[in-house]
Amino acid sequence: MLIVLVLGGFLGATLVRLAPGYGIDEEELDTRLSEQSVQALRQSHATEENLPRFYFGYLSKLLHGDLGVSQSLHRPVRQLLAERFPETLKSVGLGLALAWLAGLSLAIASVMSRLWIIDLATGLLASILLCVPAAVLALLFVIAQAPGRLVIGLIVFPKIFYYARNLLAASASLPHVVTARAKGLGGWRVLLWHILPVAGPQLLALAGVSISLAFAAAIPVEVLCDIPGIGQLAWQAALGRDLGLLVILTMLVTLVTLVANSGAELVAQPLRSGDA
């Protein structure tokens, strides 16, 4: 996990460092600045020219708990993360709760009812939400003065719905489930005792993936809905070519993804073994 984490940060740093115009400040065009100040401004990025040296120097500081100072926001990265991470956790938590509640409920309704009209309506709703770009959804919420955090739920919902519906439908068509139904077992009992246990491990894996999806969705949503979280910070860091901050954010997102997926895998493992 540590190797993946370091690699993720290194790739992020490399991409930003190689982007054209890296290490250039708009302040250079300030006509008031003296020649010495312009040169000092240019020199301030000189240490970052050698990427491996910059990166390993950076890592050694990181191991000592020093996350550095954001070049674009001129504030300690640790402070920025402490202020903004709770906001993103709130947005992502709320969004995931909404997405799972709606996605799983509608998937169950679609599979269990076996009515074409419900299948069509839920599928249509999910397709529409899948087609509308995240930024458009966020803007609609801004115009409607609705809480922007809910947009994350609407972005993640269709993915959860489609995956969950397919998994549940596949489980529902297994011979023992069909037999149970044929013997007159109640819908809820079939779902709880025969369908969900089979689909459980995959649904847990989906839970891990949905966390990554929600974090990715947080970037446009927080930018457009003016939520001061990690997503907005990542956007500002990218625009300001803030290498140090971007590396930390890349590593943070990598860490969240890894923890979420590993956690899901860890929980799903005993279930799979039980099935076997």
């Binding site: 054209p20 115009g21 890296y22 250039i24 708009e26 250079e28 065009l29 070519r241």
Partner: peptide, 8 residues
């Protein structure tokens, strides 16, 4: 061009 590239 984006602004930093232009300044470069």
């Amino acid at each position: 061009l984006d602004f930093p590239s232009l300044i470069a």
